[in-house]
């Protein structure tokens, strides 16, 4: 791959302006993991079915395996690495850790970001709304109960605070 085959992409990633040269056929997932070293975003089916690759684009859940960076020029991308506030974990992260909502941890980054998008939109969601929002993110370990409980714990502590 010569430099002539690459394109310049500018993204705002976790609050920082980022400019990189990448092959135009690379997905956002690949660029995040391979070019920016943000391996917290996980590689799953790469077919848009399991949501392991979920990130937030302009605050909304987004499947990075189906997104082309060129289409996202200048937009705001948040990955799990950008979720904590400095050394303080986001209330959702703390609640997931405390309640054992992360077993193997592979779905956890996408699960947390998807939950964050929900709480940013709806600070006090019902159990049904939490289930609906997280239903696309597959987890094989937990049976989801501890995940729902962790979201509710974060809500009770004021997840937006």
């Amino acid at each position: 791959m010569s430099i002539a085959d690459k394109v310049a992409v500018r993204l705002r990633v976790n609050g920082e302006d980022t400019a990189i040269m990448v092959p135009p056929y690379k997905t956002l997932l690949e660029v995040l993991r391979e070019d920016l070293g943000l391996t917290g975003t996980k590689h799953g089916c790469e077919l848009g079915e399991c949501s392991m690759c979920g990130v937030l684009v302009d605050g909304k859940p987004f499947l990075s395996c189906l997104a082309m960076p060129l289409d996202l020029e200048g937009r705001d991308v948040m990955t799990i690495e950008g979720m904590a506030r400095g050394r303080h974990p986001h209330p959702l992260q703390a609640a997931f850790a405390e309640l054992g909502a992360a077993q193997c941890g592979y779905c956890t980054p996408a699960m947390l970001l998807t939950a964050k998008a929900l709480l940013d939109r709806e600070p006090r969601p019902s159990r049904e709304a939490i289930k609906a929002a997280l239903s696309g993110v597959l987890c094989r370990c937990t049976g989801y109960l501890k995940i729902f409980e962790a979201v509710e714990l974060a809500v009770s502590r004021g997840a937006d605070g």
């Binding site: 391996t39 799990i80 979720m83 992260q93 850790a97 941890g105 980054p109």
Partner: peptide, 13 residues
Amino acid sequence: TKPDAFGKVSGQV
């Protein structure tokens, strides 16, 4: 809380 929990919720594992 298990020892790897914060590594997992931060995407660092």
